[in-house]
Write a protein that binds this DNA or RNA. Structure first.
Length: 905
DNA sequence: AAGAAGACGTA
DNA sequence: CGTACGTCTTCTTG
């Protein structure tokens, strides 16, 4: 083991070890569900974790090659040329591995023109000089030359990377018969086939060692080459230049200029959240606890040296009057944090770039400009404080939040309105990274400030560490905001200010309002469905002569494929699918009463389950108390395209398609004190956006003609008059049109329409022959995304697509389809958001009590107060219709009824 | 107790 | 081999 008194430096050749892992581990077992290969990453990290645990290095670095090219290939162009092409499945893993290492706070080093081993050599040399025990971990034999009394080599066995052999000075002598510094001389004589460096023919390790012991050194040997007799002697004399070249090429550089010194490689605490996130994404379940254990070790080691971040201000707690006076005097943005408990404000904190007045000595030295860096103040929520702050909170004075919505809601419940919402760091962070959002202020502090937000340990009854106070949270919020703002491209900043923040305020009111749902309606239906499900289950058992759990795909597979001997269906990860599409197919080819009963049972239990969860959500929001309404939560940062998502419960997936789903929707009713429900939805908004973006004359005409879209398109595609478009033709072009938006293939289309692939192909051909600009647009938009690295909506919302450049085909093609869809789905989301907050704001400005309750992507559900129908309907129609100026009109359908079902259409 | 997998609801 | 979501149940794992 290493000498515990000395610090230990571990330097690793990332490329060579990951490459060995790549070949050692079966790729099939190491791929994520979206197709990313991870075997090299996994093998490397598993090895590294074991290594860190065993050796407890105090300093770590991992070096990578930048490419095949290096100064060696310039000197000797044949160097490594016979190496086979690096498999693309491996190449793609290196950047991800580097991301993992970054999350683990391990330094990654690479340098143009230099090989990883040269970096190892340089670090090993510097480390040894600085008094470190150095561990070099590499799969390249050339690194044997680095071994000495301070430097030990860890070399992987043939098997892969699970076993590392330890070479200290003595081990090298035992194995090769020469001291480490002389090993390259052996290698020069023998040659290295894998590097395309031929040596002396007929000379292997044995002969080389014999000669070197005899002559003492390679130079002496080359000088005295004449003295060697026999064929090998002749060979040596003929290949003197090869040997010299080999020796020159296998000498590792020990003086590479690096951006970091050995001291900078000190082990630092990991970014626990980033590690969890990236490992989860790579589906490394078992590695997470292993890394966590490691993090514990690192934490202890790093605790001593961890540098203090920018010191937090000690928030003052001024009187209500002082606080108000100061806030009203502030001429810069103010960070605001409302601590919410049970839906109500508990404490409130502020921070600014101005010093807070000290209650005793207001106006003490504050520097020449008065700006002395952010300072903080806070107060507990009392009626006096609420009174004192109400005007300022409602004013236009700019305020910066981290996740404003719950705080806005709490203020609303306390009777206060919020104005001047200038920035939300969570929402802004999501706009920048919709695929990998930082969900909390702590994440953002970590990413943008590289500091830790102090958090009370929730596992401890009496926490040892204090969490940040609201004033300090505001201070962090303000600092993060400055960084995030610096990263926001102007168009994205506009999306934040002009779309997201107004939407946020509207959503807060929608969540507070909730939607009235009739428990009695739900309960009656639930009972009915329960009885039906039981009967269906009994019948199903009878059909197969035994009882199984119909909710268990595993047991169903036994019944279908073992007992009933039905043909195997689509494969899943763990067996064969039993989903509805598959069961319907089976019913056609191998009819069996069990199949139909099972499908019906599924439908009944699914409906009942939805009803039950809705029922238990009625008045479920404890903060409000049972009010007979359901209060969903809209997750504004919940999608990658710009859409909202809805949780607890999800009100964006209430059934509508099936026969009986109307009975669920009819339980969503107009609330007390209101007159009726209004539903408003955009018809074919995505196709309209497609028409606008592609500028396809045919599609634009379709929307301007007033003709039914699919009838119009069908007439063009099939070359008939609109009135002669049959239902079958209409179905086909409808599927085609909708499929376009998702990047549908001929294969997918044929499957959906249950037609031959050739017919599907023909259909697509005909379609594009008539609507060619659509195809051109779709192609060019993906191409543009490949160039830019992101897509953009009509309003400038961006979504990055790094995988468009991936060498992994599955990954790349998935990204292409998503990139195709993102501007269309995203623009639709933008338009709906704009319409939503305009309607919300107009209602308020017009003094209406009618209110928006729900948003279901292209539909709004609005509760109309008595006597307000006409005014409200007019606002809704106008605001949805003019939310965007497209080259085709935005068609809005409006319905009216006492419940959601009858208001729909 | 927590997470994965399969299934299925919506736009 | 069609995009974007959330939630339920069962089953596995710790």
């Amino acid at each position: 083991m290493t000498d515990s008194a000395k610090p230990t430096l571990l330097v690793v050749d990332g490329h060579s070890l990951a490459y060995r892992a790549f070949y050692a581990l079966p790729v099939d077992n190491f791929s994520t569900k979206d197709g990313q290969h991870t075997n090299g990453i996994y093998g490397f990290l598993a090895m590294l974790i074991n290594l860190i645990k065993a050796e407890k290095p105090t300093h770590i670095a991992v070096a990578f090659d930048t490419s095949r090219q290096s100064f060696r290939t310039r000197v000797y162009p044949e160097y490594k040329v016979n190496r086979s092409e690096t498999p693309s499945e491996f190449k793609g893993q290196i950047p991800i591995l580097q991301d993992c290492l970054a999350a683990m706070s391990i330094q990654v080093l690479q340098k143009e023109d230099i090989e990883a081993d040269d970096i190892l050599a340089t670090l090993a040399t510097q480390g040894a000089e600085a008094g470190f025990d150095v561990l070099v971990c590499s799969g390249d034999r050339d690194t044997i030359q680095l071994v000495n009394d301070d430097v030990t080599l860890l070399y992987p066995n043939v098997q892969g990377v699970s076993q590392l052999k330890r070479y200290d000075r003595q081990a090298v002598i035992d194995r090769y018969g020469v001291p480490p510094e002389q090993y390259p001389e052996i290698a020069a004589l023998v040659g290295e086939t894998s590097d395309n460096l031929p040596g002396v023919p007929k000379v292997g390790e044995k002969t080389a060692v014999k000669w070197l012991t005899q002559f003492g050194s390679l130079d002496a040997l080359l000088e005295g080459a004449d003295k060697i007799t026999g064929v090998v002697g002749g060979n040596l004399r003929e290949h003197l230049d090869d040997v010299r070249r080999n020796r020159a090429l296998n000498r590792l550089l020990r003086d590479v200029e690096l951006p970091l010194s050995v001291d900078d490689l000190e082990v630092r605490p990991m970014d626990a959240q980033a590690v969890r996130d990236i490992f989860a994404r790579l589906e490394f379940k078992t590695l997470i606890p292993r890394v966590a254990e490691l993090a514990g070790i690192e934490q202890q080691m790093a605790a001593v040296t961890s540098a203090a971040a920018v010191p937090m201000p000690a928030p003052v707690e001024p009187s209500a009057a002082d606080l108000r006076a100061w806030l009203e005097g502030a001429d810069a943005e103010v960070g605001v944090t409302v601590v919410v408990e049970g839906g109500l404000p508990q404490r409130i904190g502020f921070s600014t770039t101005f010093p807070m007045p000290s209650p005793s000595a207001a106006g003490t030295s504050s520097g020449d400009s008065g700006r002395v860096g952010p300072a903080a103040a806070e107060a507990s929520w009392t009626p006096e404080i609420a009174d004192a702050l109400a005007d300022w909170l409602a004013s236009d004075a700019p305020k910066v939040f981290a996740d404003a919505k719950p705080q806005v809601k709490a203020l609303r419940r306390a009777g206060l309105r919020l104005g001047g919402l200038a920035f939300d760091v969570i929402v802004a962070g999501w706009l920048l990274r919709p695929s990998f959002p930082d969900k909390t202020l702590a994440h953002l502090v970590d990413r943008y400030l590289d500091e830790k937000l102090p958090e009370a340990d929730p596992t401890q009854l009496v926490p040892e560490t204090e969490g940040a106070t609201p004033g300090q949270l505001s201070w962090f919020t303000l600092r993060v905001a400055e960084e995030v703002r610096g990263e926001l491209p102007p168009s994205v900043a506009t999306v934040l200010t002009d779309i997201e923040l107004p939407t946020l305020l509207a959503l807060a009111d929608m969540e507070l309002a909730g939607v009235a749902v009739s428990h009695d309606t739900l309960a009656a239906f639930s009972g009915e469905l329960g009885a039906r499900a039981d009967a269906l289950a009994q019948a199903a058992y009878a059909a197969i002569g035994r009882e199984v759990n119909l909710g268990s795909p595993k047991q169903l597979q036994e019944v279908l494929f073992d007992d009933l001997q039905l043909p195997k269906t689509r494969k899943t990860k763990t067996g064969y699918s039993t989903d509805a599409a598959v069961l319907a197919d089976l019913q056609e080819t191998n009819p069996h009463p069990f199949l139909d009963l099972l499908l019906q049972h599924r439908e009944a239990t699914k409906l009942r389950q939805i009803i039950e969860s809705l029922d238990s959500a009625i008045g479920g929001d404890k903060a409000i108390g049972a009010d007979g309404r359901i209060h969903t939560t809209y997750v504004q940062t919940g999608s990658q395209t710009g859409r909202l998502s809805s949780t607890d419960p999800n009100l964006q997936n209430i059934p509508i398609r099936s026969e009986e789903s109307g009975r669920i929707r009819s339980a969503f009713v107009v609330g007390e004190g209101y007159e009726t429900l209004l539903t408003a939805d955009y018809s074919q908004i995505e196709m309209r956006i497609m028409a606008h973006l592609s500028e396809d004359p045919g599609l634009i005409e379709a929307f301007n003609s007033g003709e039914d879209l699919h009838r119009f398109v069908g007439a063009r595609v099939f070359g008939v008059d609109p009135q002669d478009v049959t239902p079958a033709m209409r179905t086909k072009v409808k599927a085609m049109s909708y499929g376009l938006v998702y990047g549908l293939s001929a294969f997918g289309l044929s499957k959906q329409l249950r037609i031959e692939q050739s017919e599907a192909k023909q259909l697509m051909m005909e379609y594009f022959a008539r609507f060619g600009s659509v195809r051109d647009y779709l192609r060019s938009s993906v191409e543009q995304a490949r160039i830019d690295g992101y897509t953009e909506t009509i309003f400038g919302r961006r979504r990055p697509f790094p995988d468009l450049a991936s060498p992994n085909r599955v990954l790349r093609e998935n990204a292409e389809r998503a990139a195709l869809n993102a501007p269309i789905q995203g623009s639709a989301a933008d338009i709906m958001k704009i319409a939503l907050f305009h309607i919300h704001d107009d209602f308020a400005a017009s003094g209406l009590s009618s209110r928006v309750l729900l948003q279901i992507h292209d539909e709004l559900v609005i509760e109309i107060a008595p006597g307000e129908w006409d005014a409200a309907e007019q606002i809704v129609h106008a605001r949805m219709g003019d939310a965007a100026a497209l080259s085709v009109p935005l068609d809005v359908q409006i319905g009216r009824g006492g419940d959601w079902h009858s208001a729909g259409h």
